[in-house]
Every structure is written in structure tokens, then in C-alpha cells.
Design a protein around this nucleic acid. Sequence first.
DNA 1: GATGAATGAGGTTTCATTCAT
DNA 2: GATGAATGAAACCTCATTCAT
Lengths: 204, 204, 204, 204
Amino acid sequence: MVSEPQTPRRERERLRHRREILDAARRVLSARGVEAFTIEHVAKEAEFAIGSIYRHFASKEELIDMIAADLSEPLFAEAEALAASDLPFEQQLERLVRATLATLADDLPLIRAFGAGSGSERLAPIRARYFEAFDAIVKNGQREGVIPKGARAAKVVALMGLVAGFAKWRTFDALPKRFDAVPTIVGVWLGGVATATKRPRKGR
Amino acid sequence: MVSEPQTPRRERERLRHRREILDAARRVLSARGVEAFTIEHVAKEAEFAIGSIYRHFASKEELIDMIAADLSEPLFAEAEALAASDLPFEQQLERLVRATLATLADDLPLIRAFGAGSGSERLAPIRARYFEAFDAIVKNGQREGVIPKGARAAKVVALMGLVAGFAKWRTFDALPKRFDAVPTIVGVWLGGVATATKRPRKGR
Amino acid sequence: MVSEPQTPRRERERLRHRREILDAARRVLSARGVEAFTIEHVAKEAEFAIGSIYRHFASKEELIDMIAADLSEPLFAEAEALAASDLPFEQQLERLVRATLATLADDLPLIRAFGAGSGSERLAPIRARYFEAFDAIVKNGQREGVIPKGARAAKVVALMGLVAGFAKWRTFDALPKRFDAVPTIVGVWLGGVATATKRPRKGR
Amino acid sequence: MVSEPQTPRRERERLRHRREILDAARRVLSARGVEAFTIEHVAKEAEFAIGSIYRHFASKEELIDMIAADLSEPLFAEAEALAASDLPFEQQLERLVRATLATLADDLPLIRAFGAGSGSERLAPIRARYFEAFDAIVKNGQREGVIPKGARAAKVVALMGLVAGFAKWRTFDALPKRFDAVPTIVGVWLGGVATATKRPRKGR
DNA sequence: GATGAATGAGGTTTCATTCAT
DNA sequence: GATGAATGAAACCTCATTCAT
């Protein structure tokens, strides 16, 4: 008996081409930077005609957003899996930090896509999901009693700030190339949030 | 007796014009964003002719870099003053963090100018100076014995990461608008760096 | 006994599809204007594939011409029926003017399709038929003796000019929306052609 | 003594270039039609760079509108002069009709620019001025008592319809090439408006 | 006959930079 | 030094048409 195809071939081809374009676009963005990210370059890299790019993405803006969405997907999937796992909180934390740093290191463009003022409304839900991934882990930490309750948003921002900060500054020259930032980030943050609420503050 | 001018009038005028252009350029960048940052807009805002802009800045790139340098100048001056002052370390720290956040909040474009991979070689010394400003303060902290010695670069990066992270994420929606980030940053970092080196770590 | 079909089913289907496309094309042209008149829009409106449009019409040009022909068809049919009828001339005239105005009002695009210099050679016979429809009526008027003989072409042009002029200018703001132009057109034209040949002209 | 220039040379040159572009644009529009009216063609015809066209006209749309405005200018000037002159009404009328026909014959594009649904808001005042030019003459005719009072808007539309109709249909094949339409238009209109209000109408 | 993804020439527009005055 | 019109490469995007399935 002949197998019933799940999706018709046309549709499958279409999706495959979309993926090829997305991958080519990512390569262009990674290799040549935002300035050189032109539809023509993407078309050449993907070996499609210019017009064909526009059949899949309504505008250059949308294409960039889709790259960001595409790049973050695995990270978010892992983050959600981690948050839902029954690993102890600290392992969740460490793995999430490591995964995030790895993603950011591999795909510098992502940082930029998330960069302040990218302004695209399309990315808002993506950013939200990113935030929530961290938030879920932190919540677990509070549930385990490892870190104090309260002010979770600030805690999450502090954590993401540390991660993003290390990711960004590593691209410059401040740190040794092979420096493993994860222990520092985790250590600073855990130490910090544990004591932050108790420390009496002096001065202005 | 007629005073001997330190700098001849010609030179003074030239500097004044340069400053006017720089200020106009900053206004344009702040008010209308990078996309609308064109030499023509700058010229109109500065009330100079297009060609005159090029008398003072060799290219648009250079102009942008000079804005970044210009914007950071007061912050760096204050940072160096703070580092050289005889204020207790924690006050130095808190004031520097506050000043940095204020600068970043006022001039979002600066963040972008510093944005990862802006690629301009011209900004490298500026970035270095920024780093050193933080470094000097941290060194004071170590000298006072408030924070442990060693791994100063990592400490500085952690601090700058926290600051930059809060600045960036505040532009999104994660935190309440009037949230004062300074105590959190200082608290997390101080708590973190104090314990980071001692904490035994578990898991992978 | 099974009826012998006049036209085989294939052919009937084909004609039905052609009509559906034509109607969809007219709707697109009417609703969204020439600028938005693209084959893709027509295909979507007709619920056919792009390629299918080309099965029925060799090019976009031809499709537009066919719309014009199609739109004028009922008007021409009525005009020829009127001319062949035994209604008194003035009723023929009035009804033709009214029908023409109604067609032009309903289908503004027609005006444009007929617009000076649309250039399509294919429309020449349509234009001719349009002219002849008016001509036949005018000839009846001459036969009845209501309007003087001679210079029939000029008379027809004058009449069509009046009709077209009112149709066009009504789309602007010169006349009240609900103004019934028919009496004015008929009156002016009848009065005019009746006296035109007799009036002594002064001045240059 | 050296003469004081009315306008500085820069300004004069600028205006001259604007005029050259406008003239070139008119030639392109006249010779090759709307379809081929591209900025590139205009630039080539005017012997300017593409970008230079945009220094003078913000968009292709604006350029087209300016052609229309430019083309109508002399006609309107003459119309207003005629209306203000103390020529007898019928001479005003005949001359205006003749001038209008001449303009429309010379510059077919004008017809199109005025064509129904050109839609450009920029042209609204131009159209209004066109209408008012006719209106002023008709008003004079009423003042002289040559044509009856009342319904002036309809009279003006009738007149403009006749003129436009003859102009348009002459471009087709209905009339002999050298046919002088002016007497017919003036005759039909004068005869028509004189009797239009008095004629009893029959039929529906 | 029907389909619709792919094509790519061609259009509009922007803008950093030059240069004659 | 100041001016600002001119330049034209290069970007984005559209859409009539083709053609393999």
C-alpha cells in the first residue's frame, strides 16, 4: 500500500526553501555584519532570486526578526526543558547560563537583534519568552529555598545582565579568550542575591 | 596692554563650530535614531552646510565615534575624579554605578554606539578607558580590603555586565519604570564578589 | 433520450471560468484602482491560480481590454436596441444619455480604460462601436427632422463630449452629488445643434 | 557701478535647472507616455543624475503634478486675462475655448493629468482654478444678458465637457484632422444654454 | 487545464561624498 | 573655511510572466 504523505510535496518544498533562505541569511549576518546584510547578498548566498526571498519574507525587517526567532528557538526549548526538569536548581541555573553564553557566542547577531532599540514589535514576544525562561529557573531556586523570595524581576534582570554583560564584553578585549565565565556569573549572582537583601547600605 | 590670546581667534571659532556640530549631531541621534542620522539632518540641525560638516569630520563614521567619545567624556571625568577622591570605596562604587546608569538612560544611542561589534577601531581606546574607570574603583575596593584580591578583570566585567544589563533591560518592560537599580546592582555585586571565590560549587 | 449538448461540457466550463476571472478582475479594478490591479490580486479574487489567468488571457493588457469590452457590452446592446426601436427620437436620446452616464458612474475604471491614449489597438473597434451607437441615434433624429442634417460626426462628438464631460467632472466637486445631468445634456445639445448652423458668428 | 543682482546666482541656477528638468519631464511624458515615464528617463533626457531630480522634486508623483501645474499655467493666465478684459463676452468665450483646445492638443498629458481619478490632492487647487476661469467668463455672459441667469455650475460643466470631449475624441478617429471645433462648441453651447431652460421636455 | 513558486529586470528612492564657487 | 547642488552607486521592493509538476 502506498503511504499517505503527511504534507503535500509543494508545501514541503516550500518549507525547505524557507529554511534554506533563513540559514543563508544567518550566514550572511554572521559573516558580514548588519551593514552588509542586504537582500541581494542573502539571495546570492541562498542561490535564489531576489524576488524569491520576498515570497517567503515580506520585508528585510521581517527576515531579520525571523533569524532572531530562529536562533533563539533551541535556547528557549532547552531553557523550558531545564525549568521543567527535576534537576536541582543550581544545575538548572548553571546549564542555562552556559547554554545562553554558548548561543550568544555562536551567534553574535542575536545579541544585536536583541540589542536595545531594535524596536521591532515582532520581537517583543520573543524577548518576553527569553525573560520567562530565566524567570522560571529563578522561581525554582526560590522554591528550593536556595535564594530568598521577593523581587524576582530584579533578580532575573541581574542574572540576565551578568550573562549579557559577559557575552558582550568578551567580544572585546577585557577577558582572556578561553576564560570560562559561567562560574563567575553563577557565583556572583548567587552570592549577591543571597546577601543583597540583608546587607545594610551606607552612603548615598 | 592687549592680552596675548592663548589660542588665536581662528582656532577658537573652529572649535566652537566643531562643538556646535557635535551637539547638533547628538540631538539628531537622540531624537530620531540611527536610521534618521544622516549628514543632511545633522547639517540642518547645526545650521551649517553639508560641506562644512566634512571640514570638521572626515566621514559619518568618524562623526558617530566622536559623539560616543563626547558623550562618555563627562562620565569618564567623573569616574576618574571618583577613583582619585578619598571617598570610601563603597561610595565611589555607588556613585559610579549611578552616574553610569544615568548616562546610559539619557543617551540610549551611546549604548548602541558601544553596541557589540560596532566594529569601529576608533572606539577601542574609548572602550578601554571605560573599562579602566571601573577598574580603578575596583582596585580601590581591593586596597580597602572590602572585596577580595585577584581576578580583577572578571570582577570588573561582572560589574559592568550588571550595569549594562540593567540599563538595557530597563528599556524593555521587565522592570517598573521608577525602579532604582543602583542598590540591587551594588548589593548583588558586592555580595557576589565577596563570596564568589569561597563558595564550594556543586554539580557540573 | 439524452440531449445532445450544444457546446460540450469542457467548453462550457472554460467559458464559465473565463467569466469568473473577468468579473473578479472588474471588481479588483473598480475597488482598488489601476495601481493595485495586479494579476496576483485578480487571481486571489477569482480564486484561481496565477497561471490559470494566463490560460484565459494572454497578458495583463489583454485582460484589461477585455474588461473594457465586457463593461461596454450591455451599454452597446442597449444603444443598438434603442436605435432599432420605434421609440420617438427624443426618448431614444434621453435614454441613451442616461444609460451612458449610469455606466460611466458605476464603472469609473471604464473611463480610464477609454482614457485618451490608452493606446491599445485592441480597443479601436470598441471605440468605433461606441461612436456608432451614438451615431445611429443622431441619424434617427435627423430622419425625424428634429435636428438639422449635415455634420453628423461633429454633432455626435458634441453629444459624447457633453456626456463624457459631465461624467468626468461629476467625480470632482463642481456639481451637487445628486444633480441629474440628463436634462441639461439633452437640453444643451438639442438647443445647440438646432441653432448652431443658423447662428451668425461675430468676432474671431 | 556694478549692478546689484536681484537673486543670487546660486538661486538662479537652481531655478534654471528645475525648469530644465520640468521641460525634459514634459518631453518624456509627451513622447513616450505615462508607462515609460520613469525618473531614469527623465534624468537621461534632462542630462542630470537621478539623484539630482530628487533634489528638485520630492517624488515622481510630485514631478507629474508639477508638469500639470506648469502646463496649465499659461492657459490660466490667459483665461484670467480674458475674463478681466473688456472684450465682449462672446469673444472672451471663443478665445478661451480656442486656447483650451490648443493647450489640450499640444499637451495630451495634461488631459491625463486632469484625468478622472488622478487622485492627487495636489492637483485639487489647479482643477479649481481651471473651473473658476471658465466660471468667470460665464458670469460675464450672464452679466451681459447673452445667456440666462442661474445654474451657472451646470453651464460651466457643460462647456468644459464640450471642450474636453472634443479634445479627447479628436485624438481618436471620429473627426477630420483639421476640423475647427471652436465654432461647433461655442454654437452648441450658446444655442443650448439659451434654450435649455425654456424647452418643455417630453418623455422620461 | 490548473497550479503557484520562482524569476529577475526594472522601478523608486536614499544618502555619503565631492567640488566648483 | 563655508557653501550646497550634483552625483550615482546601491538599497529595497514589485510584479508580469514562465514552467515543471
